[in-house]
Computed example of a mutant assay.
Amino acid sequence: MRKLFMPLLIVFMIIMAACGNNNANNTAQQESSTTTEPEFVTYESENGPIKVPAKPERVVMLSSGYVGNVLALDVPVVGVDSWAVGSSLFADKLKDVAIISEDDVEGVLNLEPDLIIASSTTANLEKFKEIAPTITYTYNALDYLSQHVEIGKLVGKEAEAQDWVNDFKARAKQAGQDVKAKHGDDVTVTVIEHYAKQMAVFGNNWGRGTEVIYQEMGLGMTDKVAEMALADGYYALSVEVLPEYAGDFIVLSDDGSDNSFKDTDTYKNIPAVSKGHVIEANAADFFFNDPITLEFQLQLFIDGFLGK
C-alpha cells in the first residue's frame, strides 16, 4: 500500500506545481496586457479622427516647418525635404536621414514610414495616405507654440511639449524685460531678410525670430513695419526705402550670396547700422519657429541686445 501511495503523491505534487505555474503565467499576462500601451491611438486631426501609432518610430516629414518640432521631441525621423536640411541647426539630427519631396511618392514608400506629417497644401496627399497615417497642418492655423504642443500630442509627448513651452515663454519674457531695462521701454526692432537678391521686412509671426522678439520678448516694431507687414506677415522692399522701416535695432538674416547693399551709403547711414545695433544670422537657420530654432534665436538675441 505504501509503495502505491508514494507514486500517487508525487503525481499529485507535479499537477499542483503545474497549475501554480499556469496561474502565475496567466496573472503576468493579464498584468502585462493592462500596462502595455496600445499600438495605435486616435488623433483628432484638422480633417477628423485618424488612427496613428502611439509611439511612432519612422516619421516622414513632408513639411519642413514642423521638422524641428519633431526632432526636439526626439521622435525618429527617416525622411525630410531639402528646406529642412538647409538649416545647420538640424545637421546632427538629420545626417543619416533621407531627403525626399512631395513629388517622390515611391521614395516615401521605400522608407516604410509609420507616420507622415505634411502641410494641408502638400501634393499627392491621397497617395501618401495609402502608405501610412498622414496628418496635415495648415500653416498659422495655430500659433507657433500651440503648434508644438499639438505635434507633441500627435507623437505621444504632449506633456513634454507643454513643459518646454512654459519654460521658453518665461525665459523669453525675462529677456525682453532685460532689454527694455537697458535700452528703454519703447525700443524698436526691425526684422529684415536678404535672400537671393530680395529684401523684406517681417511682422510678428513669420519666422525669422519675429515670434520671439515681438510676441514673447514684447519688443516693439516701427509704425511703418506695422503698417506694411503686420497683416500679411512680410513686405518686400528695396534698400533705398529701408531707412523708413528701420528701428533702434535691426535683426538681419541673409544667405550671404550678395551683400553689396551693406556698402551703400543708404544702409550705412541708418542709425541702427552706424551704432552697431545689427544682429546678423544665416537665413537658412532663421526660417523656422520650432523649439530648436527658437532656442538658437533667443540666445542670439540675448547676446545681441544685452552684450552677453
Rank of each mutant, 00 (worst) to 15 (best):
I131A: 09
I131N: 10
I131W: 06
A132R: 09
P133A: 02
P133V: 02
T134P: 11
I135G: 01
I135R: 02
T136R: 05
T138Y: 08
T138K: 14
Y139T: 08
Y139G: 10
N140P: 00
A141W: 06
A141H: 11
L142P: 00
L142S: 01
L142Q: 05
Y144V: 07
L145C: 02
S146P: 02
S146K: 13
S146I: 01
Q147F: 04
Q147A: 09
H148Q: 10
H148P: 02
V149D: 04
V149N: 07
V149Y: 05
V149F: 06
V149T: 09
E150G: 02
E150R: 14
E150H: 09
I151Q: 04
I151M: 11
I151N: 01
G152V: 08
G152Y: 13
K153E: 14
K153P: 01
K153S: 13
K153A: 12
V155A: 07
G156Y: 05
G156L: 11
K157V: 03
K157C: 09
E160Y: 08
Q162S: 13
Q162W: 03
D163T: 13
W164R: 05
W164C: 04
N166W: 10
D167C: 01
D167M: 03
K169S: 09
A170N: 14
R171H: 03
R171D: 06
K173A: 12
K173M: 03
A175T: 07
A175W: 04
A175Y: 09
G176W: 11
G176I: 10
Q177Y: 03
Q177H: 05
V179L: 09
K180M: 15
H183Y: 13
H183E: 08
G184I: 08
G184D: 14
G184R: 10
G184W: 11
D185Q: 12
D185V: 05
D186G: 12
V187E: 01
V187D: 06
V187S: 03
T188A: 06
T188M: 08
T188R: 00
T188H: 07
T188V: 10
T190A: 06
T190D: 05
T190N: 04
I192Y: 12
E193K: 10
Y195V: 08
Y195L: 13
K197Q: 11
Q198L: 04
M199A: 09
M199T: 02
A200W: 12
V201F: 12
N204H: 14
N204F: 08
N204C: 04
N205P: 01
W206R: 15
G207Y: 04
G207S: 07
R208S: 04
R208D: 04
R208G: 01
T210Y: 04
T210E: 09
E211H: 06
E211K: 00
V212G: 05
V212Y: 09
V212T: 15
V212E: 06
I213M: 06
I213A: 00
Y214Q: 00
Y214I: 00
Q215R: 05
Q215I: 00
Q215H: 00
Q215N: 15
Q215S: 07
E216R: 01
L219W: 08
L219Y: 09
G220P: 00
G220I: 00
G220D: 15
M221T: 04
T222L: 14
D223H: 12
D223A: 13
K224S: 14
K224E: 13
K224I: 09
A226Q: 13
A226K: 15
A226G: 06
E227I: 09
M228Q: 12
A229D: 05
A229I: 07
A229S: 11
A229P: 10
L230A: 11
